[in-house]
């Protein structure tokens, strides 16, 4: 262990006590294999036990340690201190979400939106287990695979100015997941998701800034999912205009 240190400017907010969040500086040892989350754990264990933040797996799978690092949404378990030398490193709660305390944001809004798009396989009629599984070819899997990599870390919402300005927007991850199930050959729920997708606060709210896809730690492209859903919705609409008796899929 070397004597080198690096400074973290961490946002603090105590509900009922602070009017608004403010930064607090902490000096932590600089270790070249440390990520921002390690530094936060060091602060909590050694310097100030009252610091609050969420984390779990520390390997980019659980999606709970998302924060703003120098203004960019990041999984703090994957943001190495060495990439931010000489510092200081600004660590803030995920942008666009209400802050509960320190670096902890309220998840309710996202969870509600996730439920609303019904991100599971919907069948017109379930077949009994005895008839076996719903089968799929590798090519059919390939059509939606990248959109199924989402870990619900909400970095895309923190990157989305539209969500920041109009929080009613269903948002990148929820739409990408809806799109993922719409693309799934085993799914028959397109019609059930459509009212949420084609609502004024659904896909049409997006202005294709595209930053959601840039910050996604899992290589999902929510921006493409949203634009393709617009194209599908618009095509649907056009068909229903020229063939009112049933051009819709």
């Amino acid at each position: 262990m070397s004597d080198a240190t690096i400074t973290l400017e961490v946002t603090r907010y105590r509900p009922g006590h602070d009017r608004e969040p403010h930064p607090q500086s902490f000096e932590v040892p600089f270790q070249k294999d440390w990520v921002v989350l390690d530094a936060l754990n060091h602060i909590k264990d050694r310097i100030d036990g009252t610091l609050s933040y969420r984390w779990s797996c520390r390997m980019g799978v659980c999606g709970s340690c998302g924060m703003m690092v120098n203004g960019v949404p990041k999984l703090t378990c994957a943001a190495f201190l060495r990439d931010y030398r000489p510092g200081p490193i600004r660590v803030e709660p995920l942008a666009n979400f209400p802050v509960i305390r320190d670096l902890v944001i309220a998840l309710d809004d996202f969870m509600e939106k996730l439920r609303r798009v019904k991100p599971w396989i919907i069948r017109a009629e379930e077949k009994p287990v005895s008839e076996g599984e719903y089968r799929q070819t590798p090519a059919q899997l390939e059509t939606y695979k990248q959109f199924s990599m989402c870990i619900n870390c909400m970095l895309c919402y923190a990157a989305c100015p539209v969500y920041g300005l109009a929080p009613a927007f269903v948002g990148p991850a929820a739409i990408a997941l809806a799109y993922r199930y719409n693309l799934d050959s085993r799914d028959e729920g397109y019609r059930l998701r459509e009212p949420v997708m084609s609502d004024a606060v659904g896909v049409w709210e997006c202005t294709f800034v595209g930053e959601c896809s840039v910050v996604c730690p899992k290589g999902v492209d929510p921006a493409a999912a949203i634009q393709r859903s617009k194209l599908a919705g618009a095509t649907d609409w056009l068909l229903s205009m020229v063939m009112p008796w049933g051009g819709r899929r």
């Binding site: 907010y13 509900p15 009922g16 602070d18 608004e20 969040p21 942008a95 666009n96 979400f97 209400p98 802050v99 509960i100 309220a106 809004d109 100015p161 920041g164 300005l165 109009a166 929080p167 009613a168 927007f169 004024a200 606060v201």
Partner: peptide
């Protein structure tokens, strides 16, 4: 159209400039 969101007391709601 977006309805104004219901803000819960105690939470800090950031405003995007």
């Amino acid at each position: 159209m977006s309805e104004p969101r219901v803000e819960r007391p105690g939470l800090y709601y950031p405003k995007l400039p």
